[in-house]
Amino acid sequence: MQTARKLGEIFLRREPESVSRARATVRELLGPDHPAYERVRLAVPGLTANAVGHSTPGPVGDLVMVVLKVVDDFIYMEVTDPGSASGKPCLKDPSPDAENGRGLFIVDELSAGNWGVRDFGAGGRTVWCAIPAELAAPWKRPSSSPYGRNSGRCGLRYMAISRKAESHTLQTRCVCLACFRYSSV
């Protein structure tokens, strides 16, 4: 039997500033000491940015709703927006030089694929994900990451992005913009 407890919700305008407001709400609701705080803090902006950037005003209004719940051993996030006629959110394979397009990739990694979309037609849509509540903060992960050699501080697998450094050594960079970890290959 599932036990669910709503931590809170926030209604946001469809504007870029709403992404940072959603992240601040995570801090207020979970607190930085919660074991899943960093993972949730990384996932919520991806879901919120998609809702803000890709939804269109509809009959249900121009707001985005972010809800956080504890469901069994998971932090469950829902972001509901007015929807879009152009299609539902999907994973992309962003080019290494792309400045965006990694939001759902990060959500997919953090939730181990435990995310989805509920489409309500003209009533909007909800994109959700569930992240284990008891995992240690990403940078407290042991140096032997289960994701292998190409993983950043955050624990996400990343695509190797080559950069020639001053010393002509090959560098790789995590695609997660939150960690900016460089390491020699």
Rank of each mutant, 00 (worst) to 15 (best):
T3I: 05
R5D: 06
R5I: 05
L7W: 01
L7H: 01
L7F: 07
L7G: 00
E9A: 15
E9P: 03
I10S: 10
L12S: 04
V19N: 00
S20Q: 15
R21H: 14
A22I: 10
R23V: 11
R27V: 05
E28P: 01
G31S: 10
G31E: 06
P32N: 06
P35S: 09
Y37V: 02
V40F: 02
V40G: 05
R41T: 01
V44H: 05
T48Y: 07
T48R: 12
V52L: 09
G53E: 13
T56C: 01
T56L: 08
P57W: 02
G58A: 06
P59K: 12
V64L: 12
V66E: 11
L68D: 00
F74K: 12
E78N: 13
D81C: 04
D81P: 07
G87Q: 08
K88M: 02
P89I: 05
L91G: 04
K92Y: 01
P94N: 03
P94L: 06
P94F: 03
A98E: 14
E99F: 02
E99Q: 07
N100I: 02
N100S: 12
G101V: 04
R102W: 03
L104R: 06
I106Q: 01
V107R: 11
L110T: 02
A112H: 12
A112G: 09
G113N: 04
G113H: 05
D119T: 02
F120V: 00
G121P: 01
G121F: 01
G121V: 02
G123C: 01
R125N: 05
V127W: 02
W128M: 04
I131E: 00
P132I: 08
P132M: 06
A133E: 04
A133N: 03
A133V: 04
E134Y: 06
L135H: 08
A137F: 03
A137H: 14
P138W: 11
W139D: 13
W139S: 06
K140V: 01
P142C: 03
S143P: 06
S145C: 14
Y147L: 13
Y147C: 11
N150H: 13
S151G: 03
G152P: 08
R153N: 09
R157M: 11
R157L: 13
R157G: 08
Y158F: 15
Y158T: 13
A160V: 14
T169V: 11
T169Q: 14
T172P: 00
R181C: 05
S184D: 13
S184Q: 14
